Amino acid sequence: MSDETEGVRLQKVLAAAGVASRRASEIMIDEGRVEVNGKIVTEQGRRVNPDRDQIRVDGSRIPPPRRHMYLVLNKPRGVISTMDDPEGRTTLADYLPRTKERLFHVGRLDTETEGLIILTNDGEFAHRLAHPSYEVRKSYHVQVAGVMDNRTLKRLEKGVTLDDGPVKPDKVKLISRGQDRTLLQVSLHEGRNRIVRRMMDAVGHPVDRLARTAIGPVRLGNLPVGETRELSRDELGALLDMIRM
C-alpha cells in the first residue's frame, strides 16, 4: 500500500508516463478511470510510489518509470542468438544500439529463424518472461515444404507427440498454399528447443522458413529486418501483468 503522505502526485505520474497532460489526468481521476493497487481513485492529490504501486487507466497497466532498457529486435536470418561469438559470427549485438548496459535476450531463436526477439537489462523481467510457468504465447509465420492437406492441418491443431512429449498449439491457421509450399500461422505457449520445426517434421512437412511475429501483446508489425525499437508503454504494461511483476 502506498503512503499517501509521501511519494508523487498521481496526476504527475500519469503525465510523466505520457498518458495525458496533468489537467487531462485530473479529469480522468474525476471520472473514476484510474486505479491504484486495484482500487479506483477519485480524489485529487493522491500520492503514489510509481515504482511500487500498480497504476491502471481504463484497465490498462501503466508501467513504472523506466530504470531499464526493453528493446524489440527483428532478428535477421543467419544471426546467432548470443551477444558475442568466439568464432566471429554475426550475433544479436551487431544489431543493437551502442550501450554500456549488459542486455539479455529473452528466449532464443535458432540461427535460421528470423523475427521478434526481446532484449533487456532487467534480469528478473527476462527470467520471468522466458519461464514456461507464465505461459506467454508466441506466434510464428511458418513456410513448409509441400502442400499441406486439411487432414494434416487438423492433426496439427489436435497436437502431435514428439520424442520429449506431446505438444498442442493454441492456434494453427492456413494462410496460403502454393504449388510446392504451404504458409501457416502457428501460436503456442511452448518454449522447448526448435519446437515448431520439430512439429512440422513430425507431420512430414519440413520448415523452409520460420519467423516469430509476436510474443504476448508485442507484435513485430512493420519493424524492418535488423532494426530495433523500444517496447511501448502499453506493451510493457501488459507484459508486466502477464508475468505478475
Rank of each mutant, 00 (worst) to 15 (best):
L153R: 01
H105V: 00
R233Y: 05
L210D: 03
T228P: 04
M148C: 04
K100Q: 13
D170V: 02
H127F: 13
P97D: 07
Y134N: 02
V136G: 10
G221C: 14
L231K: 01
S187N: 03
Q143K: 09
T213N: 10
R137F: 13
L156H: 10
E101V: 06
N150W: 07
L116W: 09
M199I: 13
T213L: 09
E235L: 13
R108L: 11
V136S: 01
T152E: 02
H189S: 11
V106E: 06
R108I: 15
S133C: 10
G123W: 04
N222F: 03
R192P: 00
Y134A: 04
R181M: 15
S176R: 06
M200P: 05
G216V: 11
S187F: 07
F104D: 03
A145Q: 06
H189P: 06
G123E: 05
H189D: 09
G165F: 15
L156C: 11
M200A: 09
G226M: 07
G204E: 10
T213W: 08
D110S: 05
L183K: 00
M199V: 14
V225E: 11
K173M: 06
P206R: 10
L183T: 00
L103M: 04
K158C: 14
T113W: 09
E227M: 09
P169R: 11
T213R: 08
L109D: 01
G216I: 07
R98K: 10
R198D: 04
E230H: 06
L103Q: 01
K158Q: 14
N193G: 01
Y134C: 08
S139P: 05
P206G: 05
R128D: 02
V196Q: 01
E190Q: 08
G115E: 01
L231W: 04
R192W: 15
R102K: 13
R209Y: 01
Y134H: 02
E190W: 08
A126M: 03
V160C: 14
K158I: 07
P169F: 00
Q143Y: 06
L116D: 12
L210H: 04
Q185R: 03
E114K: 11
L103S: 01
R229T: 13
V203S: 11
R102N: 02
V144R: 02
V218G: 13
P224Y: 06
L156R: 09
P169G: 10
Q179L: 05
T161C: 02
Q185N: 03
L156Y: 13
Q185W: 01
L188A: 00
R192Q: 12
E230K: 02
A211N: 03
R177D: 09
P132F: 11
F125R: 12
L162D: 12
V106W: 09
L156P: 07
R151E: 13
V207L: 06
V167T: 15
